[in-house]
Design a protein around this nucleic acid. Structure first.
Ligand code: MN
Ligand code: MN
Ligand code: ZN
Ligand code: ZN
Lengths: 165, 165
DNA sequence: TTTGCTGCAGCAACTAGTTGCATAGGTTAG
DNA sequence: CTAACCTATGCAACTAGTTGCTGCAGCAAA
């Protein structure tokens, strides 16, 4: 999934989150910590449901309720720790927005694959456009849709010695 | 809302829709025609709800059910007549994608205003990126978020002779 | 301790949007 | 004409995500 190199960061995500919460006079509760720890335990695109499942009842033990997971996801976005990246299969797809270089995605309509690409050019075009409009840009979300190289190869079946009967 | 000039098109939206449906061996039913006519009766950003309201029961007589409105919106996207442009107030925002020049939007987090800007530069950057990845791009969705010029002016109150008591 | 205040969790009810299903109705063959 | 076929509709049930409410924990004043 991740073909871009990761970056080292000095402040751990949990601490960055605590700092953010302090500025809003909010606390890093055990529930909120459970969510941020879970999310930063692996570096992948993810959706809310998998954490609702594992943190709130259905599959795992109750570490945070469904509402709390969703509310914490909002806080994590505000804090700049995660961002919405696309919508796939009726679900919002998120990713880490901290400790990882800026990029956008080519999204294959057939297989759903999300190919990451760095976006300096686009960012700088947007800086210019925003300046022209006196617009203070804080971020962007770009979904490029189409068919990936794998899926657009002619329907020649995948390489195989012999078909099964 | 629209600060970009409109373009003249030869084929009317309803006819373009009928053509598209034919290629899929589908019919332009009265319900589908009602939806596309309603949507093309004005040239604005819009959301599904307003057409569900006016076409399905609640306000007028039933021209197309809720499901049919939503299903027709999908078809209109496939047909290249409309496209999703952003998400605002928990609703998808659509706009005409036919008879109007390509553009993207600066979206103000405070007032919700959507400022349109033409996007040739961005399209061409994306063409290059897509080519590099052997990706056959069919479209994109770009939301630039931030604070618009109006909203970022110092909090000097709006011009008013005398405050109300 | 008791009392009061505040922030947060969990619940349940809600909204936008999707989908399975039964059936209405159009199209074609006989 | 009818029968078979097939598409598209409307309904109702469903899903992802949001929100108002209530009650409880943590802290502070009395
Ligand atoms: Mn990514
Ligand atoms: Mn627009
Ligand atoms: Zn693919
Ligand atoms: Zn604004």
């Amino acid at each position: 999934m991740s073909q871009l190199a990761t970056m080292n960061v000095t402040v751990a995500p949990v601490d960055k989150f605590r700092e953010f919460l302090l500025t809003k006079k909010m606390r890093l509760t055990p529930e909120r910590e459970a969510v941020v720890t879970a999310i930063y335990s692996s570096h992948d695109h993810f959706d809310a449901d998998q954490w609702v499942d594992s943190l709130a009842g259905r599959k795992g033990s109750m570490l945070a309720s469904r509402s709390t997971v969703y509310r914490t996801l909002h806080l994590l976005q505000e804090a700049g720790l995660i961002r919405k990246v696309a919508r796939a299969n009726d679900r919002e797809v998120y990713e880490h927005d901290y400790g990882y270089p800026q990029h956008d995605h080519l999204i294959c309509k057939k297989c759903g694959d999300m190919i990451e690409f760095p976006n300096e050019m686009i960012s700088s075009v947007l800086e210019t456009v925003a300046a022209e409009h006196g617009f203070r840009m804080s971020g962007h979300r770009l979904e490029v849709e189409g068919i990936c190289a794998k899926c657009s190869r002619p329907p020649q079946r995948t390489h195989r010695k012999l078909d099964m009967i």
